[in-house]
Every structure is written in structure tokens, then in C-alpha cells.
């Protein structure tokens, strides 16, 4: 069964140029037509295999920069081969591979795999309710490892300036549908004697990592579990053991009493979070495999998602 992947920021795809992206290791060309509708084709011309993405967007679709063949975005069918005689027709079987594409909440999604595209997009939940920060990168870490590290040590992959993310996570990941949710303690930098001396953490970092797929949600929460910062990171396998990332995040209205330094930095426009494109291999290698074990197990588990309510008798395991 296929799935939707968020592959690009909406604003990154515009005008008469296509955007080259990589999803599940496959190169795609994403573009819009004159009406703004989004399309995705395999970034490979079926004629002589050159990338389509450098070509211009024409009224009939995306034109190959090599010989000018043009492909319809929705069907992938080739609808124009320059210099054909008037009595010649493009054979019906001439087509680039096309993928269903859809847009929601600032993300362009591509459906990959079998089956009818699902109605709900990974980015459907995301609603920016504050000043936004966006970006994209290719991270120097393999996709599956990226998801695992997001559970085992998210501080290797991102930061919240002024916040120390601890490695003390609460319990085990909680299964929520197709995601694993895990909270870990965090503290304000420069307040108190450091995380080791904290009786109760003043902040939480909640990571919501997919068992399958690439939609990650990270939230910085107050001690009362009210959101301060929300980030949606869309990850996908890129080539040569790297990971494609696109993200949007925003700062919530600051109702909770927060350190003045943090408030001031936000007030003058300093970003409330950073996603690392360059990942410290030594830091990742030093992480013990811990909550991510549950993700690996869940990937092989074909049963229905775990229920929140578990009978006591079933909770006693050896």
C-alpha cells in the first residue's frame, strides 16, 4: 500500500520552473501549471533519461530540456515532440511516470506506491498559529536512522535556542496510530544548576515519529504541556544514505511565564528552533539504541495499533 509524502514547501514550487526533490530514494520533478495546481513526475525523461526538472514548464506540462518533449503533469503522457510532421502523432504509450500530488498547509505531497491515494495528507494537521520558520535540507544521515535518532536523541538533530534537551525520556514510546510519541525533559539554559539538579523539568520536548512514512512532529511544551513551539518535519530517503528534509514550524502565543532572555530573542525575530542539516556523527554514534527499538518492533508488527487502555493482567510482562 502506498502513502503520501510531504516533499516540498509550497512556496518552493512556483513560476515556470520545476523543483527537483528526492523521495524514497527516487528523484522527482515537482511543478505547477498556470492555475497553480501541483504535479509530480519522475525526474527522468523516458526518451534519453535526462532529468526533466531543469526544463521549463509549458502550457502542456513539463518540457524536457534536452529534446523538448513535453509531459502532462497529471498523466505523464507525452503530448508534444518538437519537429514531428503534421501527420505524425505521439504514440499513446509514450509517457513519463506521474505521481498523484496534492497540497495542504504549506506542503506539497506526493503519493507513492500502490492503491488509491488516501484522503488525509500528512501535513493536514499543521496549522501555523504564529510566526513561521521554514526550511529544507539534505541531512547527512540515513532516513531510518533519522527517525530512530529523533526518538533516541533529538538533540542531535535539532535545537531550541536557550533550551537544554535532556536524554531523560518519560517511559517508553506511546503508540498513537501510525506514530510513536515520546516526551523527554528539558530545561532553560542559564536557569538553575543544570538538568542533573532539576527535581521536575520545566519543559518537555515531545517527538511524534512515524512507524512508516516520514511525517515528524516535534513540540516544545511548557511544564503544563502547553505548546510553545510546534514543528512539522517531513523526512524522506534521499540518495547515498542521506535524508531529505522540509519543515515548517511556528512560535505559539507566549502566555506562560517565560525567561525574559527567551522572550527578547523571539521578540527581535530570532528563530525559536533550528533543524540541523549537518549532523554530528560522533554524537549520533554515541547514542544508545533505546526507544527506537519500539519503532523497529512496530515496523514488523502488522497488528492493529495498540490501545490506550490495557488490561492490568496484560501489562504484567516478563
Amino acid at each position: 500500500m502506498g502513502r503520501w509524502w510531504a516533499v516540498a514547501l509550497s512556496e518552493a514550487v512556483h513560476g515556470d520552473k520545476a523543483l527537483a526533490v528526492t523521495c524514497e530514494g527516487e528523484q522527482l520533478a515537482v511543478f505547477r501549471d498556470g492555475k497553480g495546481a501541483v504535479f509530480a513526475l519522475e525526474d527522468r525523461c523516458p526518451h534519453r533519461r535526462v532529468p526533466l526538472s531543469p526544463g521549463p514548464v509549458k502550457p502542456g506540462g513539463l518540457q524536457c530540456p534536452y529534446h523538448g518533449w513535453t509531459f502532462d503533469g497529471a498523466t505523464g503522457l507525452c503530448n508534444d515532440i518538437p519537429n514531428l510532421r503534421r501527420d505524425e502523432r505521439v504514440p499513446a504509450r509514450y509517457a513519463a511516470r506521474a505521481f498523484p500530488a496534492a497540497e495542504a498547509n504549506g506542503f506539497i505531497h506526493v503519493w507513492r506506491g500502490a492503491g488509491t491515494p488516501a484522503a488525509v495528507l500528512p501535513g493536514a494537521w499543521y496549522r501555523a498559529a504564529g510566526r513561521e520558520q521554514t526550511g529544507s535540507a539534505v541531512a547527512n544521515i540515513a532516513f531510518d536512522q533519522y527517525l530512530d535518532v529523533m526518538l533516541d536523541g533529538p538533540e542531535c538533530l535539532l535545537s531550541f535556542p536557550g533550551v537544554h534537551i535532556t536524554d531523560f525520556f518519560l517511559g517508553d514510546p506511546r503508540r498513537d496510530g501510525e506514530h510513536l510519541v515520546l516526551d523527554r525533559g528539558a530545561v532553560w539554559k542559564g536557569k538553575g544548576n543544570g538538568p542533573a539538579f532539576v527535581r521536575d523539568h520545566s519543559l518537555w520536548v515531545r517527538t511524534r515519529v512515524p512507524v512508516r512514512g516520514g511525517d515528524i512532529r516535534v513540540e516544545l511544551l511548557s511544564a503544563e504541556e502547553d505548546p510553545l513551539v510546534t514543528i512539522f518535519i517531513a523526512a524522506s530517503e534521499n540518495r547515498r544514505g542521506t535524508t531529505s528534509l522540509v519543515w515548517r514550524g511556528f512560535l505559539h502565543a507566549m502566555a506562560a511565564p517565560l525567561p525574559w532572555r527567551w522572550r527578547t530573542a523571539r521578540a527581535i525575530g530570532r528563530a525559536p528552533f533550528a533543524i540541523f542539516p549537518h549532523i554530528d556523527g560522533a554524537a549520533v554514534a554515541a547514542l544508545e539504541v533505546a526507544p527506537s527499538r519500539d519503532r523497529r518492533l512496530a515496523k514488523t508488527d502488522t497488528r492493529m495499533p495498540a490501545e490506550r487502555v490495557v488490561p492490568v493482567q496484560e501489562r504484567c510482562a516478563v
Binding site: L170, G171, D172, R199, D200, E224, R315
Partner: peptide
């Protein structure tokens, strides 16, 4: 928890991954 740590503001603790 220590009794002295608990006041009117809710504090979260975990036992066997349970809140």
C-alpha cells in the same frame, strides 16, 4: 514524589511508562 514537592500545580511522574 516527595510530599514537599507537590502543591496545587500538577506534577507529572511516570511509573512503568504510565503517567
Amino acid at each position: 514524589a516527595y510530599s514537599a514537592d507537590i502543591g496545587e500545580r500538577a506534577v507529572r511522574r511516570i511509573v512503568h511508562a504510565q503517567d
